[in-house]
């Protein structure tokens, strides 16, 4: 009996996870592992794609041609990152159509941060600096996730994404070096984007629905709270360097811990936005559906061409 169980697919899977080996598409894996991955990777993909909207809002109004080119290149990257991630999800047997369908029916989520509006040019700086900054902290950790295709997509994405955060921070640097109005604009953007950025890491570890199992399967490698702490620790000095103030009265360096202490997230707001009642939830989804419908003729044409060739 012991011999048989040593040879069982479950046992091989468990051993691989234990030994820090990657799981690859054709390996046997528990149903729950597969489902959990499809949920997380598709949510990640949707976030990349929906995230193009708040930035696209400023494409035609970026202050210079150079800034337009940079912003366009960044948004183009996000679309590409969505593709890498959808492809990784497809290696698990999910189809692109059902993933998009799940987004449109609200069964699949995307990062709530993109339900906030981009009101000024400084918001584009804040998004690159804070939102991409937070995403990078998360994605660096996910480079060692246990599913091979997801891990490799993360490596590719992190490599490409290094410019996103810097271009955003540079926008903030320029505004912070500017006149009083420009400095106020930078501060206002930081004030509005700081807390939603901290929310990107999700609920506290104790309240996170999928965290414990994901950690056991090594899909997630570091806890929400640990990643959030890492982001705060690296970002506070960056704000100080350009004379901006983090909007948190409880923020203080804790020498004993070697970390910043910071205030509590407004979880009511978090829940409100996650459940669909943020400022832009409906707009973001409607826009995605519309764009998807508007593209139907292209897909039709491709199919018609393929049939003709066959």
């Amino acid at each position: 009996m012991a011999e048989a169980s040593l040879e069982s697919p479950q046992h091989r899977f468990d051993n691989r996870i234990e030994a820090e080996e990657k799981i690859e598409p054709k390996d046997w894996m528990p149903d729950g592992y597969r489902k959990n991955l499809i949920r997380q990777i598709s949510q990640h993909a949707h976030s990349e794609v929906i995230g193009m909207q708040p930035e696209g809002n400023w494409l035609t109004r970026a202050p210079t041609l150079k800034r337009k080119c940079i912003l366009l290149a960044k948004i183009q990257d996000e679309g590409g990152h969505g593709l890498y991630l959808y492809s990784a999800a497809e290696t698990l047997g999910a189809s692109r159509e059902e993933l998009v369908e799940a987004l449109h029916t609200g069964h699949a989520k995307y990062a709530s941060i993109f339900n906030y509006p981009t009101l000024t040019w400084a918001d584009i700086g804040a998004i690159g600096w804070l939102v991409d900054g937070a995403a990078i902290v998360n994605q660096i950790s996910l480079q060692s996730t246990s599913y091979g295709p997801y891990a490799r997509a993360m490596v590719r994405i992190c490599k490409e994404e290094s410019f996103h955060q810097r271009q955003g921070y540079e926008i903030m640097v320029k505004l912070a070096e500017g006149n009083a109005t420009q400095r106020a604009m930078a501060q206002d953007a930081l004030d509005r984007w700081w807390w939603p950025s901290l929310m990107m890491f999700g609920p506290h570890d104790a309240e996170s629905a999928h965290s414990a199992q994901s950690m056991r399967w090594k899909i997630k490698r570091q806890s929400n709270d640990d990643l959030r702490q890492k982001f705060v620790d690296q970002t506070v000095p960056q704000a100080e360097a350009i004379g901006l103030r983090i909007p948190d009265t409880k923020l203080v360096w804790n020498a004993a811990r070697g970390h910043y202490d910071f205030g509590e997230i407004d979880w009511n707001e978090f829940n409100r936005v996650v459940s669909g009642n943020g400022l832009c939830n409906r707009q973001r989804l409607d826009h995605h559906k519309q764009a998807h419908e508007d593209g139907e003729w292209v897909r039709d044409a491709l199919r018609a061409y393929a049939e003709k060739q066959a």
Binding site: K66, C69, I70, A73, D77, G133, S162, F163, Q165, R166, Q167, Y169, E170, V173, P237, Q238, E240, A241, I242
Partner: peptide, 17 residues
């Protein structure tokens, strides 16, 4: 060139990003 991170100059006080 702006697709590369090195295109952007960081303030001296920020060591890396």
């Amino acid at each position: 060139p702006y697709r590369h991170a090195t295109y952007y100059k960081l303030p001296d006080a920020v060591d890396n990003m």
